[in-house]
Deep mutational scan, measured.
Amino acid sequence: MKVIFLKDVKGMGKKGEIKNVADGYANNFLFKQGLAIEATPANLKALE
């Protein structure tokens, strides 16, 4: 799943980066902790 990092995550990515991560990792950790959001077309447009 493609995500946009909202904060730096050690060993994974930096704020503003777009990366592919495992679905479970994104849903169970990154999204719940507020560290990333899904890289949807609307979210990608908002990032620009």
Rank of each mutant, 00 (worst) to 15 (best):
M1E: 03
M1R: 08
M1W: 04
M1Y: 09
M1D: 01
K2H: 08
K2F: 12
K2D: 12
K2Y: 13
K2W: 15
V3D: 00
V3M: 02
V3R: 00
V3T: 00
V3Y: 01
I4Q: 03
I4G: 00
I4C: 06
I4Y: 08
I4W: 03
I4K: 03
I4T: 02
F5L: 15
F5G: 01
F5M: 07
F5T: 00
F5V: 01
L6P: 01
L6H: 00
L6V: 09
L6C: 07
L6Y: 01
L6I: 15
L6D: 00
L6W: 02
K7W: 11
K7E: 14
K7S: 10
K7L: 05
K7T: 11
D8H: 06
D8W: 06
D8V: 03
D8I: 04
D8S: 07
D8Y: 04
D8M: 04
D8C: 04
V9M: 04
K10I: 12
K10C: 13
K10F: 13
K10V: 13
K10M: 12
G11Y: 08
G11T: 08
G11D: 10
G11P: 03
G11R: 04
M12C: 13
M12P: 02
M12Q: 11
M12G: 06
M12L: 14
M12N: 05
M12Y: 10
G13A: 12
G13R: 00
G13E: 01
G13S: 02
G13W: 08
K14N: 12
K14T: 11
K14I: 11
K14V: 13
K14S: 10
K15Y: 07
K15H: 06
K15P: 06
K15W: 03
K15D: 03
K15N: 04
K15M: 11
G16N: 07
G16K: 03
G16C: 08
G16F: 09
G16I: 00
G16D: 07
G16S: 02
E17Q: 13
E17K: 01
E17I: 05
E17N: 01
E17W: 06
E17D: 10
E17L: 04
I18A: 04
I18P: 01
I18M: 08
I18Q: 08
K19E: 04
K19V: 09
K19G: 09
K19I: 13
K19C: 10
K19F: 05
N20F: 15
N20P: 09
V21N: 00
V21D: 01
V21Y: 05
V21R: 00
V21H: 01
V21L: 07
A22M: 11
A22N: 13
A22T: 08
D23Y: 15
D23W: 15
D23S: 13
D23G: 06
D23I: 14
G24A: 12
G24I: 15
G24R: 11
G24L: 15
G24D: 15
G24K: 12
G24H: 13
Y25A: 08
Y25E: 13
Y25W: 12
Y25T: 09
Y25C: 00
Y25G: 06
Y25S: 08
Y25N: 06
A26G: 06
A26C: 10
A26D: 09
A26Y: 13
A26W: 03
A26M: 09
N27Q: 14
N27C: 14
N27D: 10
N27L: 14
N28V: 08
N28P: 07
N28C: 10
N28Y: 09
N28S: 15
N28F: 09
N28Q: 11
F29T: 06
F29N: 06
F29Y: 13
F29K: 06
L30P: 00
L30Q: 01
L30V: 02
L30E: 01
F31D: 01
F31M: 04
F31N: 02
F31Q: 03
K32A: 14
K32R: 13
K32D: 07
K32W: 07
K32G: 10
K32Q: 10
K32I: 14
K32H: 07
Q33K: 07
Q33S: 10
Q33V: 11
Q33E: 15
Q33M: 15
Q33H: 15
G34D: 06
G34E: 10
G34V: 02
G34A: 07
G34H: 12
L35Y: 09
L35T: 06
L35G: 01
L35W: 10
L35Q: 05
A36Y: 02
A36I: 05
A36H: 00
A36S: 01
A36R: 00
A36M: 03
A36L: 04
A36Q: 01
A36V: 10
I37S: 07
I37D: 02
I37E: 07
I37H: 02
I37C: 08
I37Y: 04
E38Q: 11
E38D: 05
E38W: 07
E38C: 06
E38G: 05
E38K: 09
E38R: 08
A39V: 07
A39S: 05
A39Q: 02
A39N: 02
A39F: 05
A39T: 02
T40N: 11
T40V: 04
T40K: 00
T40P: 03
T40C: 03
T40W: 03
P41N: 10
P41I: 10
P41Y: 11
P41V: 13
P41M: 11
A42Y: 09
A42R: 05
A42E: 15
A42D: 12
A42N: 10
A42Q: 12
A42C: 15
A42T: 04
A42K: 10
A42M: 05
N43Q: 05
N43G: 02
N43Y: 03
N43E: 07
N43V: 09
N43I: 09
N43C: 07
L44C: 07
L44R: 03
L44D: 03
L44Q: 06
L44Y: 06
L44G: 02
K45T: 05
K45I: 11
K45R: 12
K45H: 09
K45G: 07
K45W: 09
A46W: 14
A46E: 15
L47E: 05
L47T: 09
L47S: 08
L47V: 07
L47F: 12
L47C: 09
E48I: 12
E48H: 15
E48N: 13
E48M: 09
